[in-house]
């Protein structure tokens, strides 16, 4: 790479001339043959989502779990929450604990980042189904348990590929 950095600058460019009849015919042919090529050799990046699930990247800001033993009840997480999803309540006299409302949570991860004792952490799950809205308000018991993914899904790892863009490599679980 050239070491002499020229820095950012403007560069004037021009739109090409209008195409003549022959050029048009050529570009029609090119576009059609590219379409045909893709038809013959499809290059798919569809992830068949509910059946296949991606392994989320390391550090993905997924659902949040509370480590009850570590928590010191400082309420910082509830204060920082921009969506007011986290609330403190008295788990026992003189023992404040946070609970979360996933109806509001926007997964910004502020609460995890502000906790002074690392009592909150993300788990790589971001999609759970709730039967009603009340279930989305977690109590201390559900909030301290790591949510589980359904068993029968195929897990795939997302790999960035030079040829295909994204490739999904199955994770051998069985």
């Amino acid at each position: 790479m050239a070491e002499t950095s020229a820095g950012p600058r403007y560069s004037e460019r021009n739109v090409e001339e209008r195409m003549g009849l022959l050029d048009k015919a050529k570009m029609h042919a090119k576009a059609l043959s590219l379409g045909m090529l893709r038809l013959a050799r499809p290059q798919r990046i569809t992830l068949r989502y509910p059946l296949e699930r991606p392994v989320l990247s390391e550090g993905y800001r997924g659902m949040i779990v509370l480590n009850n033993d570590k928590c010191i009840g400082c309420s910082l997480c509830a204060r920082v929450c921009p969506a007011a999803a986290m609330k403190m309540f008295n788990a026992a006299p003189k023992k404040l604990r946070p609970v979360i409302n996933y109806e509001r949570c926007i997964f910004c991860g502020y609460c995890v980042d502000i906790c002074p004792v690392e009592a909150l952490y993300h788990v790589p799950v971001h999609d759970l189904v709730f039967e009603n809205r009340d279930d989305m308000v977690f109590d201390l018991e559900t909030f301290t348990k790591e949510p589980e993914e359904p068993e029968h899904v195929r897990k795939v790892r997302v790999v960035i590929d030079e040829e295909k863009g994204l490739r999904y490599v199955p994770v051998n679980s069985e």
Binding site: L39, P42, R44, T46, R48
Partner: peptide, 13 residues
């Protein structure tokens, strides 16, 4: 299906 194949997806499946 044809559109799906060309368009990096499956079409009806």
């Amino acid at each position: 299906k044809i559109a799906g194949r060309v368009q990096m997806r499956y079409g009806p499946l």
